[in-house]
């Protein structure tokens, strides 16, 4: 049971944005996708989300081609947090989160759905925003409310079977405390049996929370493995063009990546 991209190529016109990329998301796993800008991270996420057609290769969810799933069935086990959402109507934050329950609704909203929505608001630290109009929220607050919406979508799903949460830069506009809050919540989701794929820019956040790192560069998967395996100074210098020191601290939850003095060689 897994979400798998097999030998995927994506071409847009003459440009190849993904080349021969294979990646599998297993239950209980948090995978962080890292890489420089334009490496194809978001393209890979949209391929796994079924938004982007592949030029070659295929995407399977639990053994079946992703495209063959009925939309509603798929929505009960695959949720996607886009990088930016464009909601131009004044729903209350609570109502936005309840929209995440719609793949489960029969007719109206049940008490169970309300309970889940409130729990998801709690989990993302947005309970106090529940009665605020989405339009009055700041960028970071909106992002957390959207995260609460996708968490609500898959709230009880890990207990019922495999399910997949795809997060496109979930920490992008968050302060330090909320970056950790959000990734802790993602990790908890994985620990309860779900699978998470998150695009992250901060290697230290990735090292701390991810079970596995997938490094993309130029549309290729250049490395995949545990944070300790992947975060090597040579690979980081090669991929990001930044010289770093990697500090291994005994007992710490992951290696620490620190840019060296005069670190930037050739920003791409």
């Amino acid at each position: 049971m897994s979400l798998v991209a097999k030998d995927v190529d994506v071409r847009r016109g003459a440009r190849v944005t993904l080349r021969r990329v294979s990646l599998a998301l297993h239950p209980g796993e948090l995978v962080a996708v890292v890489g420089p800008n334009g490496a194809g991270k978001s393209t890979l996420l949209s391929v796994l989300a079924g938004e982007q057609a592949t030029s070659l290769g295929e995407v399977l969810m639990d053994g079946r081609p992703l495209a063959s799933w009925l939309p509603r069935e798929r929505a009960r086990r695959l949720a996607v947090l886009p990088q930016e959402a464009s909601l131009g109507f004044g729903f209350l934050a609570r109502e936005v989160v309840l929209l995440g329950r719609s793949p489960h609704l029969g007719g109206g909203t049940s008490g169970e759905d309300t309970r889940v929505a409130l729990a998801a608001l709690d989990a993302t630290g947005t309970r106090h925003l529940a009665e605020r109009s989405y339009l009055t929220l700041s960028g970071g607050e909106r992002q957390r409310v959207q995260l609460a919406r996708v968490l609500a979508q898959l709230w009880d799903a890990p207990a019922r079977g495999p399910c997949y949460l795809l997060l496109d830069e979930p920490t992008a506009s968050l302060d330090l405390a909320h970056q950790h809050l959000v990734l802790e919540e993602a990790l908890r989701f994985a620990q309860s049996g779900g699978s998470v794929l998150a695009i992250l820019h901060d290697l230290n956040l990735a090292a701390r929370y991810a079970h596995r790192l997938a490094v993309l560069a130029g549309g290729r998967l250049v490395a995949s493995g545990s944070p300790a395996e992947v975060l090597q100074p040579a690979l980081i210098a090669e991929t990001f063009g930044v010289r770093v020191e990697v500090l291994d601290r005994p007992g710490a939850p992951g290696p620490l990546v620190v840019p060296a003095a005069a670190a930037v060689r050739s920003p791409r």
Binding site: A49, E51, P71, R72, E73, R74, A75, R76, L78, A79, V80, P82, A85, S86, L87, G88, F89, F91, V96, L99, G100, S102, P103, L105, Q153
Partner: peptide, 20 residues
């Protein structure tokens, strides 16, 4: 009504919430 609510979130979002 309920599908329009999801569409207001965005086309991608509506699709991921099970709307054709």
């Amino acid at each position: 009504g309920s599908r329009l609510n999801l569409l207001m979130l965005g086309e991608r979002e509506a699709r991921h919430l099970g709307v054709d």
